[in-house]
Simulated assay, not measured.
Amino acid sequence: MSKSTEYSESGNTIYRYSDRQNEWRPPAHGEEKWIEKIEDHVRQHIGEVESVFHEILSDVVHIDVHVINPTPERNYYTLFTTGMSFLPMNTPEGAEGYEYAELMICLPPDWPISQEDLQNPDHYWPIKWLKMLARFPHDYDTWLGWEHTMPNGDPAEPLSQQTEMSGIILLPPLEVDEDFLSLDMEDGRTVHFYSIIPLYSEEMELKLKHGSDPLLDKFEEYGINEIIDLNRHNTCIAE
């Protein structure tokens, strides 16, 4: 695998990765207590796990996607990973303490989520992205964290046929207690939780040119949070 580095107009680092060249490696075992601790944390702050999409064949880390159904209090699906935090990420200087992470995404209550529904790529892409991003740092010896963005290909294409959004940003979820955002594993390691939030190409461009602050200001102005709305307003286009 080769990795090239360049910088955006805002001075942020841009990494470009070639195809992974590492051979397949079986994942480590014995992480049951680690998973239970994450599940207990999510249960305490969000709700009960109703189902799990188990990974049948794993490479490097075993990534499962857990599903919390909509409730009157939280009327949307919450999907989160376990497995990304089984191994430390290769964080740079200045990001010490952020080596461990898990990801989540929130879907509207009418999202088709049965096994049959998920045969359709327009319905499956959130799970695909959770699994892909959770494995990405371990495949490429890198890291993912707060405000990191990734386009859907180069050039970027829409995430599905149902939206014009073509990339994602990782941000701490807003619709949770602050205590949810990190989990002390009581062995010196801390797991951080990030939401996958889709972006329009203009929003990606704004972040690359001017950094995250202007984009986050727009998100606050328009009330953008971690609950996916495929047709939400493009915050970089005037209404």
Results as ranks from 00 to 15, higher is better:
64 D>V: 01
162 Q>I: 06
9 E>F: 09
139 D>W: 13
227 I>T: 11
48 E>G: 02
140 Y>T: 02
176 V>W: 14
26 P>S: 10
168 I>W: 10
232 R>M: 11
88 P>Q: 05
85 S>V: 00
120 N>I: 03
186 E>A: 10
143 W>T: 08
44 Q>N: 14
97 G>A: 05
219 F>I: 07
127 I>G: 03
104 M>P: 07
124 Y>E: 11
93 E>I: 12
39 E>C: 10
141 D>H: 13
66 H>M: 02
125 W>A: 02
87 L>P: 03
95 A>L: 15
7 Y>I: 00
52 V>H: 09
154 D>H: 11
58 S>P: 00
146 W>H: 12
133 L>V: 01
146 W>F: 10
126 P>E: 04
49 V>Y: 06
165 M>C: 05
123 H>P: 07
76 Y>G: 05
114 S>V: 01
62 H>R: 13
212 S>Q: 10
209 K>D: 08
70 P>E: 08
199 L>T: 02
148 H>D: 12
172 P>Y: 15
57 L>Y: 06
27 P>Q: 08
103 L>D: 15
63 I>A: 02
138 H>Y: 05
226 E>G: 06
14 I>A: 02
221 E>V: 04
183 L>I: 04
103 L>V: 08
73 E>L: 14
148 H>V: 06
65 V>G: 07
118 L>T: 01
14 I>S: 01
128 K>R: 14
135 R>V: 08
99 E>S: 01
2 S>G: 08
10 S>G: 00
187 D>M: 04
167 G>N: 07
120 N>K: 10
103 L>C: 10
188 G>V: 06
71 T>N: 12
52 V>W: 10
235 T>S: 12
98 Y>V: 00
70 P>L: 08
91 T>V: 14
185 M>S: 00
215 L>D: 09
200 Y>T: 01
136 F>W: 15
93 E>F: 13
127 I>T: 00
53 F>P: 00
176 V>T: 15
179 D>I: 04
151 P>E: 10
200 Y>V: 01
75 N>M: 06
233 H>G: 02
74 R>C: 10
110 D>N: 00
145 G>Q: 01
3 K>A: 07
115 Q>P: 08
29 H>G: 03
31 E>Q: 14
127 I>S: 02
